[in-house]
């Protein structure tokens, strides 16, 4: 392990581009704790950090790649997954992690999400769901709960949102979990598990967005959103993903929902290669 055991720094600093900290995220943003959990999970999963590549798209969560001191790629809006697909197939030894926001990976990049899950390409997706587009000022998106207010749904959102674990599980992901940034221990363990699990792993992380989402939905401070997670969360490991829909004020079912075995894209490619090269 290359981790330095110096006393005077935060233990995750060795994986951070400290010259870029403090970061651009608002006070109380959920992306920071989720990033911290990932960084600690690298050690927990005993990965070689030199072989970990982080890819992200655009938006607040897209900035994660820029703060992590590993091979990191900040790509275009919604396209982290296909970029990561190229990385993984170009060098299958890499442990590819995609950090992405809900708008990035589910709206503009939704097609890539379902197809990456279908292929069961071996990578870990950490999707930080803050229920809206934060970077552009809080517009509604495909995860905004019904009736929630946003910059583009000022009278309440009239569209049904996606239930992400259900979507991804139905598309073929072999590991699906959901946590909030309040469930730090569970989240860290879950990410570590996903990092070592072959196949497409998807972890939805609910995180506060006080500045543009909370403020419009009676949760003006990050703390209010955190407290609401505390009150509304129910841990139900193994819950059927179709039953874990989120709503504006209803219960938040968290836990590990899917953990199954299925040959990965690379396994299947190798099988095909065997047919090609062995007459």
């Amino acid at each position: 392990m290359t981790k330095m055991l110096t006393v005077d720094t935060n233990p995750v600093d060795c994986y951070l581009r400290v010259d870029r900290i403090p970061h651009i995220w608002c006070a109380g943003c959920g992306i920071g704790p989720a990033t911290g959990c990932f960084l600690r999970a690298i050690d927990r999963a005993e990965l070689n950090p030199d072989k970990v590549a982080v890819v992200s798209g655009i938006g607040c969560s897209g900035r994660v790649a820029g703060y992590i001191k590993l091979d990191s790629f900040h790509t275009t809006h919604g396209r982290a997954l296909p970029f990561a697909t190229g990385l993984k197939l170009g060098n299958p030894e890499l442990n590819v992690v995609v950090f992405s926001g809900d708008g990035d990976i589910v709206a503009i990049g939704g097609n890539h999400l379902i197809h990456s899950a279908r292929r069961n390409i071996d990578m870990t997706v950490i999707c930080i769901n803050n229920f809206n587009y934060g970077m552009t000022g809080g517009q509604m998106g495909p995860t905004t709960p019904l009736d929630a207010r946003s910059a583009t749904s000022p009278y309440g959102n009239f569209e049904y949102p996606f239930n992400l674990p259900y979507l991804v599980a139905a598309s073929g992901a072999t590991y699906v979990a959901r946590w909030t940034v309040l469930h730090l221990r569970e989240l860290e363990r879950s990410i570590a598990e996903a990092l070592t699990k072959p196949g497409f792993s998807f972890i939805e992380v609910l995180g506060p967005c006080p500045t543009v989402y909370g403020r419009r939905n009676k949760l003006p401070r990050g703390m209010d959103e955190m407290r609401s997670y505390q009150e509304r969360s129910v841990i139900r490991d193994g819950a059927d993903p179709k039953d874990v829909e989120l709503s504006l004020n209803g219960p938040i079912v968290v836990g590990k929902f899917v953990d199954i075995e299925r040959p990965t894209l690379w396994d299947c490619y190798q099988q095909m290669l065997d047919r090609v090269t062995k007459p």
Binding site: V7, D8, T9, N10, P11, V12, D13, L16, I21, P22, H23, W25, A27, G28, C29, G30, I31, G32, P33, G36, C37, R40, V181, L182, L184, R185, E188, G222
Partner: peptide
Amino acid sequence: CEAMCPEFGIYLI
């Protein structure tokens, strides 16, 4: 506190 800090700004010695 260390794990929860969104700023990587608190740690234990």
